[in-house]
Design a protein around this nucleic acid. Structure first.
Length: 603
RNA sequence: GCGCCUGUAGCUCAGCUGGAUAGAGCAUCGGACUUCGAAUCCGGUGGUCGCAGGUUCGAAUCCUGCCGGGCGCGCCA
């Protein structure tokens, strides 16, 4: 039985208020009790201004009368009517007696709920191109996608995580062509290079050759690099020919393609495994790019699409309140990206009958998804409202934007190594003996802190935010960071080790948990599930680190308080505080797991 | 030109389905180790929420206009 205790407590407190209101103003909306913004305004508050009109009583008078309705409420320690607000102070001893056992045993305390029970959710993310290794942008994408998936699972949804691999197209041919022209038979084995990096090297090699060719021949003609590549460029022609050969199934091209894609796949797999990123389904563009043509034909018959004089098939964007038109079939009859996206989406719906399909894709594709969803809903009205684009902003570097064509990228593998090294150095400094005695253990912790810090950092910003990546901050323990939360967890473990079984046989006296630091911790534990639920339902993955941090912060204040020591407290209180530490550790562990971080018992 | 996103403390960001004195972290200044790990904790300084109007008992939040930044705008992905 999943019980959201916070919601339940609020409902219990609100009941007499609602009875009072319903009796006098049946039309009025029910009382929405919420934590106040003001610090000294108690634990829950109700603004009474909205009821003034219906009741024909001044807000302050309403608040005063409502205060009376809470007289002798077991959960209420005090009420105050201030400026039309009803401020309620909870009876924390009573709340504690319910909260701690709940947090120790009920899975709702871990953020589990039925908010999305019975729903099937598809999440598409990662979406690598098999011509270069994963970079920091992919890392943000994967962290967002993974968080959406884990939050949805916690909310009871059935989740299918899908990786759409872009394994065909002109950009793939560029790497292949570079291997043919400049590769001299190189392989990952012969070069000792991680396989996806080798392919990336070749891609960069191609771009460099193209740059030189353009500067020598295209630029003097006043052509842009793009136009040159699509025109008389020898490299461009060769790449286009290779794409045609690929589509025609030319054996040599297919064989090279298989081989080099295999290199990329192996590299991606290693990176994803290290990052703890997994998928239930992998869609490859080479297998889906022909999908959608029949949909377009059907849409043409139904009048969803129209044929352009040039022969291209178009979607009139005015149908969805946008300007212009969008092609779904080229004039030569070949498909475009949108065509296969239509087909892929429909196929997924046929296979999974999803309730919600979430695409985790950068915000430069906002327009594309607006168009795509508009078309899908026109083709199949049942899809209305089920398609979501989790749009996110770019990650910038302290010295500006990343530009993959210029090689100005933060490679994911290198970054993970760097963060590991930073975390390792910091750990070694604080733990010299362990570094000497058991460096492997220190490396294990460094990986947890480095990777966990990265995930926490990438996740803590709202998705639409374009933010500046700061690697030192991401592995720092000070402030709102992953390591801070891991440290709080480690300290909880440490305290419990010290307590051992001292509380065995003791009866916890929860009513004594009334110190401000104890109340704040209880409050954080109570609020945690609601944040996780909102993260899942409203697709706000940044609430995961926020909620976890709130618990970590409250717990840090608790374990630092000289008044709230567990050891040495009288038996009933010792037992109560021990259970509170166990509860906090349990919830912290759940938060770390939702983010995809490793919990450490020692740091 | 049009569309979407965005502008909040020195810096990095929350808050944006309207609620009271706008929050957090970093930085900075000061304080706490004879008691569970000081990798922590406590406190201080710091903001006309881009600007101007409007709606409202009440606006960072909603509406309008303007200014600045980012992204995108038929057969690229």
């Amino acid at each position: 039985m999943l019980t959201d205790l916070h919601a339940q407590i609020i409902a219990e407190v609100a009941r007499p208020l609602n009875d009072w209101l319903a009796e006098r103003a049946p039309e009025a909306p029910p009382a929405m009790l919420a934590p106040p913004t003001r610090e000294d305004a108690g634990d829950l508050t109700l603004p009474c201004h909205a009821y003034a009109r219906a009741l024909k009583i001044a807000p302050q008078a309403i608040a005063t009368q409502l205060a009376g309705a809470l007289d002798k409420h077991p959960l209420v320690a005090g009420v105050e009517a201030v400026a039309g607000f009803l401020n309620i102070r909870l009876s924390w001893g009573t709340v504690a007696a319910r909260t701690v056992p709940w947090a120790l045993t009920n899975d709702a305390a871990l953020g589990r709920s039925n908010a999305l029970a019975g729903q099937r959710l598809l999440v598409e993310y990662c979406s690598p191109n098999t011509n270069k290794p994963l970079h920091l942008g992919h890392a943000r994408n994967m962290v967002l996608g993974g968080a959406v998936a884990s939050a949805a699972r916690a909310a009871g949804a059935q989740v299918v995580r899908i990786n759409l691999v872009n394994d065909r197209g002109i950009h793939i041919c560029k790497s292949m062509l570079a291997w043919q022209l400049f590769g001299e038979g190189v392989t990952p084995e012969s070069s000792g290079r991680k396989s996806d990096h080798l392919v990336g090297d070749l891609y960069v090699r191609f771009e460099r050759a193209l740059q030189a060719e353009w500067e020598a021949q295209g630029q003097p003609l006043g052509l842009t690099k793009e136009d040159w590549f699509n025109g008389d460029s020898a490299l461009g022609r060769a790449a286009r020919q290779m794409l045609l050969d690929w589509e025609a199934g030319a054996p040599e091209v297919r064989a090279l393609w298989q081989r080099m894609n295999g290199w990329c796949d192996a590299g991606f797999e290693a990176t994803c495994a290290r990052m703890g990123v997994g998928f239930e389904q992998v869609d490859r563009e080479s297998q889906t790019y022909l999908l959608g043509k029949d949909l377009v034909a059907g849409g043409l018959t139904d009048g969803v699409f129209e044929r352009d004089p040039s022969g291209a098939v178009m979607f009139d964007l005015s149908r969805i309140g946008l300007e212009g038109k969008k092609a779904v079939l080229r004039s030569d009859g070949t498909s475009v990206y949108t065509t296969q996206d239509l087909g892929t989406a429909m196929q997924r719906h046929d296979v999974h009958t999803f309730d919600r399909m979430v695409y985790v894709v950068g915000n430069e594709q906002d327009h594309h998804f607006q168009c795509l969803f508009g078309m899908l809903e026109a083709l199949r009205p049942a899809l209305k409202g089920r398609m979501h684009h989790l749009s996110y902003g770019m990650v910038e570097l302290p010295d500006g934007k990343m530009k993959s064509r210029e090689g100005k990228v933060v490679d994911a593998d290198n970054l993970l190594d760097e963060l590991h090294a930073l975390a390792f150095e910091a750990a070694k400094e604080r733990n010299a003996e362990l570094a000497a005695a058991n460096p492997d253990e220190l490396h294990r912790r460094a990986e947890a802190v480095g990777l966990g810090g990265l995930k926490f950092f990438l996740l803590k910003f709202a998705p639409q935010t374009t933010f500046v990546f700061d690697k030192e901050r991401s592995v720092a323990i000070e402030g709102e960071t992953g390591a801070y939360c891991q440290y709080a967890y480690a300290r909880a473990s440490s305290i419990l080790r010290r307590i051992g079984e001292q509380d065995t046989g003791l009866t916890p006296d929860y009513a004594q948990l009334t110190l401000p630091v104890e109340q704040a911790l209880l409050s954080a534990l109570l609020k945690f599930p609601g944040e996780i639920r909102t993260a899942a339902v409203e697709l706000k993955p940044h609430l995961l680190p926020k909620a976890t941090y709130e618990v970590a912060r409250a717990f840090s204040a608790f374990f630092n308080s000289a008044d709230a020591k567990v050891l040495g407290a009288e038996p009933g209180l010792l037992a109560a505080r021990t259970q509170l530490v166990r509860a906090a550790r349990r919830v912290l562990g759940a938060g770390l797991e939702l983010i995809g971080m490793t919990a450490l018992d020692e740091m």
